[in-house]
Design a protein around this nucleic acid. Structure first.
Length: 200
DNA sequence: ACATGGATTCGCT
DNA sequence: GCGAATCCATGTT
């Protein structure tokens, strides 16, 4: 079952954890790639000094203020697109950064996407780290504002059958040392013991 | 108009 | 553990 608007219209810290173990489905010209989300981070509103929303609404972060369930993609370090899904009700900025996934269908397509960049190494960890993940799934700024609840191009699939239980590890977010006291918030979430997590 | 630095990754030390 | 690659949004002049 495809995740609906209500799934994303909740507190971003909850959604970030709830996305673990869900399927990320991506339709490309070459076929449909599927991956299990194993690592996420939550970014909140103006009170979160690590969030793009800390400056208020700008041209770049405008998607964060939009409908829950839409995509927010931005260029990071001039090299990588980073994939975020907007949460909370419209007007309350927040987004979940999808950091890592275990690709379970059509790995060959992901390998083709990764091969297009000289900045990533193609190995068995195809979508480990937010830059590699976005490239493996061929998510670029062209996909910015895409509505995951209404398109078949990209969406979250919630399995019908029960999935095996797993531990949710909570840690400070990566690369936000500038964020004053917010740097220590345990808003990075990953599946305990999963080998596709970017760092321990 | 200009300077700054970053939600990364890889390769070398 | 550290620096390079690379570019544009953001904040300052």
């Amino acid at each position: 079952m495809k995740a609906k608007r209500d799934f994303f219209n909740r507190d971003v810290v909850l959604v970030a954890q709830d996305l673990l173990g869900k399927k990320l489905v991506r339709e490309t010209p070459l076929g449909i790639i599927k991956g299990l989300i194993v690592e996420t981070e939550a970014y909140s509103d103006a009170n979160d000094l690590a969030s793009h929303a800390r400056f208020g609404i700008t041209k770049r972060n405008e998607p964060m203020f939009g409908q829950p369930g839409i995509l927010y993609v931005y260029l990071n370090y001039g090299i990588f697109n980073l994939t975020n899904i907007v949460c909370n009700n419209k007007g309350t900025p927040s987004a979940v950064l999808i950091r890592s996934a275990e690709i379970i269908e059509r790995k060959s397509i992901a390998i083709k996407h990764l091969s297009a960049s000289k900045f990533v190494k193609v190995n068995d960890k195809l979508a480990t780290g937010p830059g590699k993940l976005s490239m493996a799934f061929n998510i670029t700024r062209q996909d910015n504002l895409l509505d995951l609840t209404t398109t078949s191009k990209l969406y979250i699939e919630i399995p019908n059958k029960t999935v095996p239980l797993f531990d949710i590890i909570k840690r400070p977010r990566i690369g936000v040392d500038y964020a004053d006291h917010c740097r220590d918030l345990p808003w990075r979430f990953y599946i305990g013991g999963n080998r596709y997590v970017s760092r321990k």
